[in-house]
Design a protein around this nucleic acid. Structure first.
Lengths: 355, 355
DNA sequence: ATATACTGCGTTATCGATAACGCAGTAAAT
DNA sequence: ATTTACTGCGTTATCGATAACGCAGTATAT
C-alpha cells in the first residue's frame, strides 16, 4: 500500500508537489513530474478512495430522468428502488440524488423534465431515453456527463455509458422458450397461431423484442402463424377490452401468447378472468413486478424475462459516482444478463437485492 | 449529513464521549448515553465509512478455504475469480486475502487446509464446506468468524452467514426444463427414460439437486423412468467410459440427460464424440465453465443452471469485510438467484462481472 | 530601477472517526 | 492518611488525499 507520502519521500519532493503532478494542477517541472510518475508506477500507487472521498467536502448532485413510477405496469418503480438503494449509500457522504420523472407518453413532459435536469446543478445525469427524439436535441446542446439506461441512443457518442439489455436477443430468447412451450401441443391443430401483444408507444426496445421473437419463431416453427394486437393505452382495462375483442373475432385459442413488456400481467389477469382453458395457454412476457408475482407462481405466466431493473438503476448511479467523483474508468457498455424467470425460480429473484 | 461532532455539540459533550458511547468502550454515564443515542436517532446519524476505513490502520487478513481450482471441472476457478476481484478492491486499503485450497476428495487435505487457516492470523474465514464431517469439529473449537459459501452446514449456528443456492429447488427447476424439452418427443417411444449422471463425491448439494429433479419428474412425468449412472472419479475420461458402458448396456437413447454438476461438460463432449443422433438428446446441467461455452452455443447442452460462482466468491469476501471491518449488519442467508442459461442468453452472462 | 507576474516548490489545515492519553473527582483499601 | 482504582469526561494525534497559502527566485514590463 503506497501513499503519496511514500512517493514524495522516494523522489525527494513534498506531497504537495506529488499532488499537483497527479492532478495536473501546474506549478511543477516536467523533470520532477517524470520522476514522480516513474516512482508511482514502480511502487504501484493506488489512490486511497477513502481518504479522497473524505476530503471531498463538495456535495455532489446527480439527477435521474426516468418515466413515472407507475408507467409500464410499475416497471419504473423497480428502477427507482435500485436508484434509492444506491442513493442511500451515497447520501451518507453528503451527496444528493434527485429524480425528475416524466410522462413517457408525453413529449412536453419529457422535454420539460430533461430541461429542468440539465439546467439544475447536477454534475451527472442518469437517463432512460424512452423518447429519443425529444431528448436528442437537448442532450447535444449540453456538456454535462450522462449515462443512458434501459434504452440506448447509440448515435449520441458523448454519452458516458449505456447500461441495459440486448433487446433483440431477449426477443429471440422469448421465441426459444415459446417454441419449447408449444412443441408437441400444436401438432393436432390446424393453422396454429401465436399471439403477440404489442404494448402502447413505440421505441426501439419493443420493436427489437418483437423482431427477435418473430425471427426465431419463423425460423424454427414456420408453420405457426403470428398474429398481433396493438394496444394504445397503458392501462389494464384497455388491454382487457382489446384482448376480448380479439377473442370474439378469433374464437380458436392461440397456441401461445407473447407480451413484449410488463403488460404481460394485464394479459395474465385477462386469462385468469376467462377461466382454466385460457390460463393454460403458454404465456411469455417481461419483468417481475412486485405484488404481481402470483401470476407466475400460479403458472398463468410461464416465463418472464427480466433485465433486473433494480440492478440497472443501482448500477447506473454507482457508475455515475465512480466516473465523476472517484474518477474511475468505467465501461462504455454494460449489457445486463437476460434472466429467465419461471414458477420454480421466481422466489430466488424477488427481494434478492433489497434485504 | 450528521457527524459525531454535530452530535457532541448538540448534546453538549465531547466527540470522545460520543465515540465511547457508540462503541461501548465504557467511561460514560448511562444518562449521557441516552441523550446521545436520542440525538443520534433524531439527526439520523450514519457513520462515514470513508473516515472510519481511513482510520483503520490495521491490516485485516481474511482467509478463504475452498477446493483446488481445477476440481469440479474448473468450477472453483470461477469462485476464485470473484474472490480475486473483491481482493483487489480491498488490498488497496492494506488488507490481505489468502487462499488455502484443498483436495475435496481427501479428508487429510481438507483438515490440513482448515487447520492452517484457523491457526493463521486471519480475522475471518470464507469456507466452502464440501466436507462437513472433516470441518465441523475444527470449526466448533474455533471462535473466529466464518461465512459458508456454496454449501451450508446449517447446524453450525455460529456461522456468520451462508451464501449459496437453494440446491433442491435448482433440481426442481432442472426437472421443469427437462420436462419442457422432452414433451411431445417421447409419445411415440415405448418405455422412455431419462438418465441422471451422478458425479463423484457425496454432499448435500448433489443429493438435493437430484432429489429435486426426481421429485419434479415423477410428479409431472410419471411415465418416464429415471436411470442413474454414478461416476467415481472427477475426470473426463472416466465419465466417458462410464457413459460408454451405459450405452452398450442400453442401446436405446435416453429421452434426456440430467448431469447434477459441471460434469455436464464431460457428458456433452461424450455426446459430441458419438455424433449427431446423440447431441440432439436434451441435456441439462450446471455451471458455466470458461472455455467450454461452445457446448451450450452449439446446443449440445440445452440448459445450464448457474449459481454465479464469481458473484458468490465476490459477495462472500465483501460480506466478511462488511461484517468485520465496517461492522455492518449482514444477512444471515443470501440465496443466490437460480439463473437459466441457454444458447440464446449465454453471451450475456459470460464476462458480465469481470470487464 | 522598481513593479508585476509567474515558476517551482514546501507547509499546513481539513475532511470524520478512532483511540490513546490525561485529569479531576470519588470510593474503597491499606 | 495515603495509596490504588475507577468513573466520567475532554483533548489530541492519526489515517491519506487535497488544495489553499506562502515564499524564494527569475523573467518581463514600465
Amino acid at each position: 500500500m503506497t501513499t503519496m507520502k511514500d512517493i514524495a519521500e522516494s523522489v525527494g519532493v513534498s506531497i504537495g508537489t506529488v499532488g499537483r503532478i497527479i492532478h495536473n494542477r501546474g506549478r511543477y517541472s516536467e523533470k520532477t513530474a517524470e520522476k514522480v510518475r516513474k516512482v508511482m508506477k514502480d511502487l504501484n500507487y493506488i489512490p486511497n478512495i477513502h481518504a479522497r472521498s473524505l476530503k471531498q467536502t463538495k456535495k455532489h448532485i446527480f439527477v435521474v430522468v426516468v418515466p413515472y413510477r407507475d408507467q409500464d405496469g410499475g416497471y419504473w418503480r423497480l428502477v427507482e428502488e435500485g436508484i434509492l438503494k444506491a442513493t442511500e449509500e451515497l447520501v451518507s457522504f453528503g451527496n444528493d440524488v434527485k429524480v425528475f420523472p416524466f410522462d413517457r407518453y408525453s413529449s412536453a413532459s419529457c422535454i420539460d423534465a430533461l430541461s429542468r435536469a440539465l439546467s439544475s446543478d447536477a454534475e451527472g445525469l442518469l437517463i432512460a431515453p424512452c423518447r429519443p427524439n425529444d431528448m436528442r436535441g437537448l442532450l447535444e446542446q449540453s456538456d454535462i456527463p450522462y449515462i443512458f439506461m434501459d434504452t440506448d441512443i447509440p448515435d449520441l457518442k458523448r454519452r458516458t455509458a449505456y447500461i441495459g439489455q440486448d433487446s433483440r436477443q431477449s426477443g429471440v430468447l422469448a421465441g426459444k422458450l415459446m417454441s419449447l412451450l408449444i412443441t408437441g401441443k400444436t401438432s393436432a391443430e390446424k393453422e396454429p397461431y401465436v399471439l403477440i401483444v404489442d404494448p402502447p408507444g413505440s421505441n426501439y426496445h419493443l420493436y427489437n423484442r418483437i423482431e427477435g421473437f418473430r425471427y426465431f419463431m419463423s425460423a424454427v416453427m414456420p408453420e405457426i402463424k403470428l398474429m398481433t394486437i396493438k394496444a394504445e393505452i397503458d392501462d389494464e382495462y384497455h388491454f382487457h377490452s382489446r384482448l376480448e375483442e380479439f377473442c370474439v373475432k378469433n374464437p380458436r385459442l392461440p397456441s401461445g401468447i407473447f407480451a413484449a413488456n410488463s403488460s404481460v400481467y394485464y394479459t395474465a389477469s385477462f386469462l385468469e378472468k376467462k377461466g382454466d382453458e385460457y390460463t393454460s395457454v403458454p404465456l411469455v412476457g417481461y419483468d417481475i413486478i412486485p405484488g404481481r408475482e402470483r401470476a407466475v407462481e400460479k403458472g398463468t405466466i410461464d416465463f418472464i424475462l427480466t433485465q433486473q431493473p433494480e440492478v440497472q438503476g443501482y448500477q447506473g448511479i454507482i457508475m455515475l459516482y465512480d466516473h465523476i467523483v472517484l474518477k474511475k474508468a468505467i465501461r462504455k457498455q454494460v449489457i445486463m444478463p437476460l434472466n429467465i424467470i419461471t414458477r420454480e425460480n421466481i422466489h430466488t429473484f424477488t427481494g434478492y437485492m433489497n434485504g
